[in-house]
Simulated assay, not measured.
Amino acid sequence: MTKLVLALHVLAAIIAVGPVTVAASMFPAAARRAASSPGDEVFAGVRILNRICRVYAEVGLAVPVFGFATASLMHVLNSPWLITSIILTAVAALLLGQLVLPRQHALLTALVESTAEPRLDRAATARLAMLTGCFNLLWATVTVLMIVRPGSATGA
């Protein structure tokens, strides 16, 4: 049972978090492109990237659910590496839900409202890129902690 839940946890992380990290990273540059060369195709790409981020963020809720189930089955809920991973995951989720997605939405709104000649504040897209980078760094750190697991029996 532990192996099945662990496999589901890893699959959920790959399938859900991977697309969010890529789409969120691509969004600021795509938004700048949409503002500088307005067109339905460019704008559609920005909307798709935002939709990927929103949908896969919701799907990503399965990652901690399966993670807690795995940790419980493995009796490691009190391990420092796991507690650190839980905290970093929570920070990443808050960053995505409270800062990255709302700023993506604001930029999309700005693009829609200025259809004649879309304009975006370059500083806004730069801040979004920085926040997205922080989100990605948090997930990379959690991934490393999950693999290395300080003090694990694997000897890694």
Rank of each mutant, 00 (worst) to 15 (best):
L138V: 01
Q104V: 08
V59M: 12
A116F: 06
E58A: 12
T84H: 03
I147E: 02
F43T: 04
P80N: 11
V65H: 04
N136E: 01
L88P: 01
R33S: 13
S152Q: 06
R54K: 14
M146C: 07
H9A: 03
L77M: 14
T2N: 11
P28N: 13
G67C: 08
K3M: 06
L128G: 06
L145Y: 08
L88C: 05
S152E: 10
V63H: 08
I147Q: 01
L101R: 10
S85M: 11
G67M: 12
F27P: 07
I86T: 10
L61A: 01
T21A: 08
V20I: 15
S37Y: 08
A126C: 07
Q98D: 02
I86D: 08
S37P: 03
E113R: 12
A30T: 05
A71W: 10
A92K: 00
I14H: 07
T2K: 05
H75V: 07
V10Y: 10
G67D: 08
T154W: 13
R51I: 04
A126I: 11
L94P: 01
I87S: 08
I15L: 15
P118E: 12
A116D: 13
D40N: 11
A153C: 05
P102Y: 05
L111M: 05
I87M: 03
I147K: 00
L4Y: 12
I14Q: 06
T109S: 10
